[in-house]
C-alpha cells in the first residue's frame, strides 16, 4: 500500500495526475495485498480497481508461485520483482520486460524493518524508477521525504541504491 502511495506521489512531483489505493482485504501486516497506482496527464475519473495494468511491482518473489500475479498485465509491460535469486522464467521474459532487485537486502542494510519483516517499499520504488525510467530518482526521493515519518535519509538512500543496482533480465 505504502509503495503505491509513494509511487503516486513521485509522479505527482513530476506534474502528473495520480491516484493510489489498496484492494483492501485482511487487516494484517504481511498478508498478500494488492494496491494500485493510476498515472495520467489529465484528470483521473475511473474510481475502480485496475484489472489490466501496464506495469507490475512484486514485493515478494514467493507471490510468483502462489498468485497469478501477471493476470491482466499488458504484454510488454514491466515487472519489477523483489528477489534474492535470479528469475529464470522464459514465459515471463518472453511476454514482459523483467527487472529484479534484492530490495530486502538493501532495506536491511539501511536498518529498515527487521529480518522477519523488512520494509522494502522505498527500495522497490527506487528499483522501479531505475529499471523503467518512467519517473526520476529525485521525484522518488522527494516523495519518500514527504511520506516517511522517520528514517527519511535511510529510506531515500535505499531507493537510490536500488535505483542503481536494479538488474534488467529482459526487455530494455
Amino acid at each position: 500500500m505504502i509503495a503505491s502511495e509513494i509511487l503516486a506521489d513521485a509522479f505527482f512531483h513530476e506534474g502528473k495526475f495520480v491516484q493510489a489505493f489498496p484492494a483492501f482485504g485482511v487487516e494484517r501486516r504481511g498478508a498478500p495485498v494488492m494496491a494500485f497506482t493510476r498515472i495520467s496527464d489529465g484528470k483521473i475519473r475511473e474510481r475502480c480497481q485496475i484489472y489490466e495494468p501496464d506495469h507490475l511491482i512484486v514485493l515478494d518473489r514467493v507471490l510468483l508461485s502462489t498468485v497469478n500475479v501477471t493476470d491482466g498485465l499488458k504484454e510488454g509491460g514491466w515487472i519489477v520483482i523483489n528477489t534474492n535469486m535470479d528469475i529464470d522464467d522464459e514465459e515471463l521474459s518472453g511476454k514482459f520486460r523483467v527487472a529484479i532487485i534484492d530490495a530486502t537486502k538493501i532495506a536491511l542494510s539501511h536498518r529498515l524493518g527487521s529480518l522477519a519483516s523488512p520494509i522494502v517499499n522505498t527500495s522497490i520504488i527506487g528499483a522501479f524508477a531505475g529499471a523503467t525510467g518512467l519517473v526520476g530518482l529525485d521525484a522518488v526521493k522527494e516523495a519518500i521525504n514527504g511520506f516517511a515519518p522517520i528514517k527519511k535519509e535511510a529510506n531515500m538512500q535505499a531507493a537510490e541504491d536500488a535505483f542503481n543496482e536494479v538488474k534488467i533480465i529482459s526487455g530494455k
Partner: peptide, 12 residues
C-alpha cells in the same frame, strides 16, 4: 463518501 474507493484513495 464511499469506503475505500474514496476513503483509502490517495489523490491530489
Amino acid at each position: 463518501m464511499d469506503a475505500f474507493f474514496l476513503s483509502h484513495t490517495y489523490e491530489i
